[in-house]
Simulated scan of single mutants.
Amino acid sequence: MSDRVAAIVPAAGRGERLGGSIPKALRPLAGRSLVQHAVETLILAALVDEVVVAAPAAELDAFTKLLGPGVRVIAGGAERIDSVRAAIAVLDETVGVVLVHDAARPLTPPGLVDAVASAVLAGAPAVIPVLAVNDTIKEVDATGRVVRTVPRDVLRAVQTPQGFRRDILDEAYRLGETLPDGVMITDDAGLVEALGVPVTTVPGSQEAFKVTRPADLVFAEALLARRD
């Protein structure tokens, strides 16, 4: 396996829950867009050699100007899975490790990126950063009635970047084209799990939270101010 590492950022989504009339990745945070913060994290990571951003087709020029010449910007798809697949297709053949990172996780520390990449380079086929779940979790039925309390000691909240051997991710996305309707795949590791490939975890970071709602932007602003 080549030790060359590429990072993919699927950033073509609209982000309805966050609101606004512009793509979610372009929402401002402390004077810069979410995607700029996320890409900077990847560039600052010691092990990342290449960054590819899948942007809305109508916003390619805007993304290119924001991210600069060192980042490759391509047209993403209607769904996240389409954007990741399009980005994988343009990676250089020498890439042996692929990281997939959410544009909506702008404050992820570069050290976490390197931790994921290092674990794959050390031999793990798939690696995800995780955090323990602190809240009590209830399983409910369609009417909202509680079915059971899920033991939280076996639960983990999953973050990005998620890292994979290139050949494993390629195979997982080929499988993704044949999955039957109704199969829920919410992240790239889910596709890899469907192959039967083991997924390893590394400790995540509280700062790698996902900006989903307006309150998350306020929290991110406060964290950035504390960093400064």
Results as ranks from 00 to 15, higher is better:
V154E: 11
V127T: 10
N134Y: 14
D170E: 14
G123N: 00
D167L: 00
S205R: 14
V140G: 03
A142V: 14
V133Q: 08
F209M: 07
V202I: 10
S205N: 15
A119M: 01
R145G: 11
D135I: 11
V150Y: 12
T201M: 11
Q159K: 00
K210Y: 09
L195F: 03
L169V: 03
G144H: 10
R213G: 06
T178D: 13
T200I: 09
R156N: 06
E207R: 13
P180Y: 06
T149F: 14
G196C: 07
P203K: 03
V197G: 03
T143I: 01
P125R: 13
I185D: 00
R156C: 02
T200A: 12
V211Q: 01
T160H: 10
A122T: 03
P125L: 09
A122K: 07
L195K: 00
I185C: 12
T201N: 09
F164R: 01
A189M: 08
D170P: 05
F164A: 08
A132N: 13
L121Q: 08
L191N: 01
D167W: 03
G163K: 05
D216P: 02
G190F: 01
V127H: 09
G123S: 08
R156W: 01
K138H: 15
V192N: 02
T186C: 15
R156L: 11
L121A: 04
K138P: 08
T178Y: 15
R213L: 09
E171F: 08
G176W: 06
L191V: 04
D216G: 06
Q206V: 10
R156F: 04
D216Q: 09
A157Q: 14
F209H: 05
L175M: 10
T186P: 07
G196T: 11
D167F: 03
Q159F: 06
V146F: 03
L195T: 02
V147H: 05
P203N: 05
V202E: 04
Y173E: 04
A142R: 10
G190P: 02
P214D: 01
A122L: 07
Q159S: 09
E177G: 14
A208W: 12
G123E: 01
T200E: 07
S205G: 12
R174A: 12
T200D: 12
E171L: 10
L191I: 05
V202P: 06
T200K: 09
R148Q: 11
R166Y: 02
G204D: 00
D167P: 00
P198S: 06
T212G: 05
V150G: 05
F209D: 07
A132T: 13
L191S: 03
E177I: 08
A132I: 02
R166V: 03
L169E: 00
P161E: 00
A124N: 13
P198M: 00
E193L: 13
D135S: 11
V133F: 04
G190Y: 01
D216R: 05
L121Y: 09
D216W: 05
Q162T: 12
L155A: 12
T201H: 10
V133D: 07
T143S: 05
A126P: 14
A124P: 02
R165P: 02
R156E: 09
V140Q: 04
L131A: 12
